[in-house]
């Protein structure tokens, strides 16, 4: 079942029947066709090895399709350098330690804009802004590698924000973060999204998916099995389970109470409470 969501904004990227095989012959993507539009907040989900990261790496040209095309802002990724696509698509890698190498946090954040060859004042402006967004001003003279994993993660995100990309991909950003840190990270991303940045989140945390995305793309064995608005994404429990996904507790409760007139099209605990209150009120 595929519902193509009628979404906002201009088309930023398009996958046209993309197949991708790794050199060892593993078929990681099979027949992927999808559009990504400006201002969307997309959750990319699926079991381990379903092709989430492989798909995301096609957006900034780190991987090029074996057959089919990926178009980012009108240009074919096969003809573009990763360094150029990085201006449009920012990628926050799973492991922040795979990118940190500078002696201060500020230098680390500056690295991206510097690679773009921007003028010094512009680099400074972007660095300051990114540090502020990720609340790192206090740490800007510290050595990144001496900080906690949560801080290192925030630095890696700030270094992508400083590049001011139109799309930010977060690849499993919650590993090693506590609930509070994860929550405030998603608040920041929501704010970035409100200001026009497209967010693509790769995660296994279905509660975050339900609460912080407006579109869900489900991959299974390299195929897109599902693509819809978040509100309707969790309606087919059987299909979700086949893809190794279990909806968050609030949605499961709503499903169990369906026969009492509770709508399963909720996303948060608050919405579940409202829905239950509504049903109870009607019965009185």
């Amino acid at each position: 079942m595929t519902v193509v969501p009628s979404t906002h904004g201009e088309r930023l990227a398009a996958f046209e029947n993309v197949n991708f095989s790794y050199e060892d012959g593993t078929e990681a993507l099979r027949g992927i066709t999808l559009d990504i539009r400006k201002g969307e907040q997309i959750a990319l989900v699926g079991g381990n090895g379903s092709g989430k990261t492989t798909l995301a790496k096609h957006l900034n040209g780190l991987l090029k399709p074996t057959t089919g095309r990926v178009i980012v802002k009108g240009s074919d990724t096969r003809k573009e350098q990763v360094a150029n696509l990085a201006r449009i698509v920012g990628y926050v890698f799973q492991n922040p330690d795979h990118q940190l190498f500078c002696s201060t946090v500020a230098e680390e954040v500056r690295f991206g804009p510097m690679n773009f060859g921007l003028a010094e004042p512009e680099v400074e402006r972007r660095t300051e802004r990114a540090l502020e967004i990720m609340t790192l001003e206090r740490l800007k003279a510290e050595a990144p590698l001496s900080l906690s994993l949560g801080d290192r993660r925030r630095i890696s995100i700030a270094s992508v924000i400083a590049m001011a990309p139109e799309v930010i991909i977060l690849d499993e950003p919650f590993t090693g973060l506590d609930a509070g840190e994860a929550e405030s990270l998603m608040d920041v991303m929501r704010e970035m999204n409100r200001q026009g940045t497209t967010i693509i989140l790769i995660t296994h945390d279905m509660r975050v998916v339900a609460e912080h995305s407006d579109r869900v793309i489900v991959l299974s064995h390299g195929r897109k099995v599902f693509d819809s608005k978040t509100r309707t994404a969790f309606s087919d429990l059987k299909l979700l389970r086949e893809c190794g996904l279990i909806p968050p507790p609030a949605i499961q409760v709503a499903h169990h109470l369906r026969e009492y007139g509770v709508s399963p099209e909720i996303t948060t605990v608050e919405e579940l409470a409202d829905e239950l209150a509504r049903v109870l009120r009607e019965q009185q």
Binding site: L62, Y91, F93, Q99, N115, S159
Partner: peptide, 19 residues
Amino acid sequence: ATISSITDAQKARGLDFNR
């Protein structure tokens, strides 16, 4: 594999090894 992942991460930050 780590080295190749690091290389990817830095390329994604606009580092162009060929320039």
